[in-house]
């Protein structure tokens, strides 16, 4: 197992290296004079030339790549053209917001996806199953902005109980920075009203973001649950008189979760991409919205740095999923023990 993990890590490092080349190439194909854009049209040519020199823009492209990579390893992602701050500082501010959003939507995805999937399997062929299956079909095909428009219309305007944009209400001050996730930071500061307000702001985007994942998880859980319900051991448990719910949630759920988890992990990682739209629509100041703004404004350094961050997150997620699956599946786990 140790060797296979090491091999996998090596592959991931290679992919990451390839990704850095890809991102660099995309960022440098960007038309326009980066140094001139960074300094604005009024700066004298000599200053711009000095910056070009400093950014190694006159060197051949592969030399530039190694300068860029070296800087990244030193923790220097360059300076954002829009915010005029080091990109790393911007990432520190915006990443926790996106993390908070994605984590909350991951909780929704895991909980509702599995519960709906089990219910759907339990009432297979009856009306709760039909409703859940229709919902999950629409959850998969409808784009995030469709749900965003619908949910916003419903809960921000028709029944105005949730705010439609931002992270906190206008009357509140930001919590002291600990994790950067507002709900957590407010709770740590003992400000429950603030935490509640932050939760109200994040609720709609998180729900919208989780629709796709919930639907996928529910569909896959339903399929593998109904398959497992036919197995002889399920009939044996029923014959012993074990209550149906206990059979479902205790004995049938765990072996059914393998495929759910691998798909769910991809969906949760995909939520970082979905956040590009959702954060934009709900005006939520997270890293995805920041990245989108950077793309629209051709902010080369910010885009390449943030996309690199997303790449690392995605690859780490893949790796963690592999491990979780192998830990959950006794065959894999036992085989590993036998090897060692």
């Amino acid at each position: 197992m140790g060797i296979s993990i090491a091999k996998r890590i090596l592959t991931y490092v290679l992919v990451l290296f390839g990704l850095s080349i890809l991102i660099f190439v995309i960022a440098r194909v960007m038309p326009g004079d980066v140094a001139r854009m960074a300094l604005g049209p009024r700066t004298p040519e000599a200053t711009v030339e000095a910056l070009r020199e400093e950014m190694h823009l006159r060197d051949p492209i592969y030399t530039q790549y190694f300068y860029w990579l070296g800087d990244i390893f030193k923790g220097d992602f360059g300076v954002s053209i829009i915010s005029k701050r080091p990109v790393l500082d911007d990432i520190r501010i915006y990443l926790p917001a996106t993390m908070e959003l994605v984590l909350l939507s991951a909780v929704f995805t895991a909980f509702f996806g599995i519960v709906l999937g089990v219910l759907s399997a339990k009432y297979s062929g009856k009306w709760p199953d039909a409703i859940i299956r229709i919902f999950s079909y629409f959850g998969v095909v409808a784009p995030a902005f469709f749900w965003a428009v619908l949910v916003m219309l419903l809960f921000a305007y028709l029944i105005p109980i949730l705010p439609s944009s931002g992270r906190i209400g206008p009357g509140l001050t930001e919590p002291a920075h600990v994790t950067g996730m507002y709900i957590l930071d407010y709770l740590l500061a003992g400000n429950t009203a603030g935490a509640f307000d932050a939760l109200k702001h994040i609720l709609m985007p998180a729900v919208v973001l989780s629709f796709g994942g919930i639907s996928q998880a529910a569909r896959i859980t339903r399929t593998s649950m109904t398959e497992n319900m036919m197995k002889p051991y399920a009939s044996a448990e029923r014959a012993y008189g074990i209550p149906e719910n206990k059979i479902l949630f205790k004995y049938l759920l765990r072996p059914s979760l393998n495929s759910t988890i691998s798909v769910m992990a991809l969906d949760i990682a995909g939520a970082f991409a979905g956040a590009f739209l959702v954060e934009q629509i709900f005006n939520y100041p997270g890293l995805s919205r920041y990245c989108l703004q950077a793309m629209l404004n051709k902010d080369v350094f910010a885009v390449s740095a943030v996309v690199m961050v997303f790449g690392v997150i995605f690859i780490v997620m893949n790796f963690v999923t592999d491990i979780i699956i192998s830990v959950l599946d006794p065959r894999v786990r036992l085989a590993a023990r036998g090897e060692a």
Binding site: I23, A27, V307, F314
Partner: peptide
């Protein structure tokens, strides 16, 4: 296949946005 892996390392939407932004 390694080249494909690199392109698959990111969600399609992020890469598409990245490419079309240039």
């Amino acid at each position: 296949m390694r080249l494909a892996d690199v392109f698959l390392a990111l969600p399609a939407l992020i890469l598409v946005l990245c490419v079309s932004s240039i």
